[in-house]
Design a binder for these strands. Sequence first.
DNA 1: TCTAAAACTAGGAATCATTACTGATTTACA
DNA 2: TGTAAATCAGTAATGATTCCTAGTTTTAGA
Lengths: 136, 136
Amino acid sequence: MAVKYSRQRQVIYNFLMSRKDHPTADVVYQNVRQEYPNISLGTVYRNLTLLTNRGEIQRLQVGDGVDRFDADTSRHCHFICSGCGCVTDLPLDCMEDMLADARKKFDGRIDRQSTYFYGLCRDCLNHSADISERDA
Amino acid sequence: MAVKYSRQRQVIYNFLMSRKDHPTADVVYQNVRQEYPNISLGTVYRNLTLLTNRGEIQRLQVGDGVDRFDADTSRHCHFICSGCGCVTDLPLDCMEDMLADARKKFDGRIDRQSTYFYGLCRDCLNHSADISERDA
DNA sequence: TCTAAAACTAGGAATCATTACTGATTTACA
DNA sequence: TGTAAATCAGTAATGATTCCTAGTTTTAGA
């Protein structure tokens, strides 16, 4: 299937490029709707999937049951805060080494790697410290 | 909430310990049902979640929309075949280094890491080679 | 510019993994 | 054994995502 230009896809892609917080499909929908009130959620999902398959964006599955999307396709890890659910980029030097090591040890072809770290972000850590102090 | 012994949970855990292929909740259900015909899928889910929260097993979210479960809680990566969907363990030496590097670079607390590799397993590679030869 | 085919869309229905609810049962412990 | 809390079976509800269909937009070529 040849890919034809569509206004909706362009707007979806532009919105994703403008964000660094890895929005969900619904967040993309709610925002794009400001400009295109008639756009449908199905269209947002279809285009996010299409862009992912074409390698222009990447889909993140951080484990909370909702997929997220990232316009940055460079190889990097993600951190997911168990407190507030925020997702932030985490570029690590050792990713290349890890991939090389995996390829050496695994009998098969490895195309892609995805790494997620989980914990508490700085804001949530500070907040829980506040609570501890208050309770003390 | 104190955790009480339950026959069902024991059977679910035993089954998971006997498998190396990271079964889904439904696969656990179908198998445990052989021995306990009355067990319900809800009970399987509840206990798998409870065991995960207690750190006795781990939940895998490999990206196909269905969660998988692993009785091996040691730190290791997983490979997911894009061809047949099989999930296999992939222990790598560099995981500790990577975690240490992430902790050094990230301002916050990192508790846990999960790494997935995607590609084609040996069987699927051989199979696609067969198809290429046949078509040639 | 006109036209036809292919790709795309909006809107809504369908899917399906997972969770929540409810009344009955089991477990722990005095 | 008696009792309260935890758990269960069965089923309904949830919610993210995909599928479906009729109509619209885009593109390429005459």
